[in-house]
């Protein structure tokens, strides 16, 4: 049994033991502690209640609390497992774990599927795909004709919907990603590989030994 001195720190309401989070995610204990420092910073940026609200998430991502974006909204919602409109520390670490370079590819594929399944039906539907393409065009200055958008959506759908039932199910998605691995490229954040080195200012002195 380990004996260590814990710094007296006020933990946030959703705080969870780093050793438990490290055991459940690709992070080491030190990395979870570094993430806690990051979490505290983000979660106190607007409302200092130790929880990340959607505005704080947007502010951290875009340096602008009012900048909304369909995909960042979706990511926030997926991080918010409990669906209580805030991200707690455990949710933050477990969700970011999916983006770790060492996380299983299957977790990344599943996360991306949930991200694109806008209406949580268990399928990616053609209308959802179209909606996402239009949202991207709206946020960028890219101008594509409606016909062109329809053509891209049709083409993608005919490639992915191998069963031809008008929707992409998780198996079809998995297969489609295996043919197009770049689709989950943004599910990996190299920053997370060694967050303690990348962000030394977040590292607090800890005598908890990393088990790995």
């Amino acid at each position: 049994m380990g004996c260590f001195h814990s710094k007296i720190t006020k933990h946030t309401p959703g705080y969870e033991d780093p050793t438990i989070l490290a055991a459940e995610t690709p992070f080491t204990v030190s990395e979870v502690e570094a993430l806690y420092e990051l979490f505290k910073k983000i979660s106190s940026s607007i409302i200092d209640d130790g929880l990340i609200h959607k505005e704080e998430f947007q502010l951290a991502l875009f340096r602008n609390r009012n900048r909304r974006n369909l995909f960042s909204d979706r990511i926030f919602d997926l991080f918010d497992y409990k669906r209580n409109e805030v991200i707690e520390f455990g949710e933050f670490v477990r969700s970011l774990g999916v983006f770790h370079p060492n996380a299983p590819v299957s977790d990344k594929v599943a996360f991306a599927f949930r991200l694109y399944d806008l209406r949580n039906t268990g399928y990616i539907e053609r209308e959802e795909l179209r909606e996402m393409v239009l949202a991207l065009l709206h946020e960028s200055d890219l101008v594509l004709s409606e016909d062109f958008v329809e053509m891209i959506v049709d083409k993608t759908f005919s490639d992915a919907d191998t069963k031809g039932d008008g929707r992409i199910d998780p198996d079809e998605w998995k297969e489609f990603v295996s043919r197009n691995p770049s689709l989950i490229k943004n599910m990996t954040l190299p920053y997370l590989k060694d967050i303690t080195l990348a962000f030394p200012s977040f590292v607090i002195s800890s005598e908890v030994e990393d088990s790995e």
């Binding site: 990051l38 983000i42 951290a60 991502l61 875009f62 340096r63 974006n69 369909l70 995909f71 960042s72 909204d73 979706r74 990511i75 970011l96 983006f99 694109y116 795909l129 996402m132 393409v133 949202a135 991207l136 946020e139 960028s140 062109f148 053509m151 891209i152 959506v153 083409k155 993608t156 759908f157 490639d159 197009n180 770049s182 689709l183 490229k185 943004n186 954040l189 920053y191 967050i195 990348a198 962000f199 200012s201």
Partner: peptide, 26 residues
């Protein structure tokens, strides 16, 4: 057309979580 709609979507800034890790000095 060889464009893949999901690849296009993934260009969205909303997917770039790197902002979470950037220090702001404000």
């Amino acid at each position: 057309v060889n464009l893949n709609a999901f690849e296009i979507i993934s260009l969205s800034a909303g997917f770039d979580l790197s902002g979470l890790f950037e220090e702001s000095d404000d």
